[in-house]
Design a protein around this nucleic acid. Structure first.
Length: 196
DNA sequence: CTCCGGATTCGT
DNA sequence: CGAATCCGGAGT
């Protein structure tokens, strides 16, 4: 066998800490850009670099699922930070969020697009496509993001503020004034952002 | 119990 | 621009 370094077991990827998620949702959203979403299933490690997210700011945010208070669907959103909130939409797609701030807050960051890094089949631009490519479904709702099969690893290099674009969130026109807030963040110039 | 619509995607 | 497709939330 070759003596190439690749024949050694890979060092375990570092994980973002609980305290990373337990901060202001807008800040967490911006700092998630450039990080790596990691999904391990049947020994296969799929990795995508997060390039587009949206912040949902708790029950007073009329675009957020938490605006209706705690329900069967959104209870994960009201749980502790650093967990995955995964729900089904339009009867056929899944969307993944990262729960932020303290338990009871009802805030989260929606993951909207990835740049494929490793073992990605299919497109990853758009929340539904992202979940499909990463094999993420409702069974992962409430899953701890400090686990070994679903977590987020730090960025290779922090995305500079100048490289981050702000825009209105997509698909929330029903939310009145909240639909106008610039709570969508993406890496400027990335070819993997869902819409431009 | 019924009814409605959605943090989407795809094909026309 | 409309269909797909199903579940949760709201109303009767």
């Amino acid at each position: 066998m070759s003596a190439h370094p690749d024949t050694f077991p890979a060092a375990p990827l570092r994980k973002l800490s609980r305290s990373f998620y337990d901060r202001g949702t807008v800040l967490v959203a911006q700092e998630l850009l450039g990080t790596h979403l990691v999904r391990v299933e049947d020994g296969i490690e799929r990795i995508g670099r997060i390039v587009e997210v949206e912040a949902y700011l708790g029950p007073h945010d009329l675009a957020a699922h938490s605006a209706k208070g705690v329900t069967a669907r959104n209870r994960t959103m009201f749980g502790p930070p650093g967990h995955a909130y995964v729900y089904m939409i339009y009867g056929m797609h899944f969307c993944m969020n990262v729960v932020t701030e303290g338990a009871g807050h009802g805030s989260a960051v929606l993951l909207r697009a990835l740049e494929p890094v490793r073992n990605i089949v299919g497109r990853t631009q758009g929340p539904g496509l992202l979940c499909k490519a990463m094999h993420i479904d409702r069974r992962l709702d409430g899953h701890d993001l400090l686990s070994d099969d679903l977590f987020i690893a730090p960025p290779e290099a922090t995305v500079p503020r100048l490289r981050i674009a702000r825009a209105k969130r997509i698909g929330v026109d029903y939310a009145g004034p909240w639909s106008q807030r610039l709570l969508r963040f993406y890496v400027k110039g990335s070819a993997f952002v869902s819409r431009r």
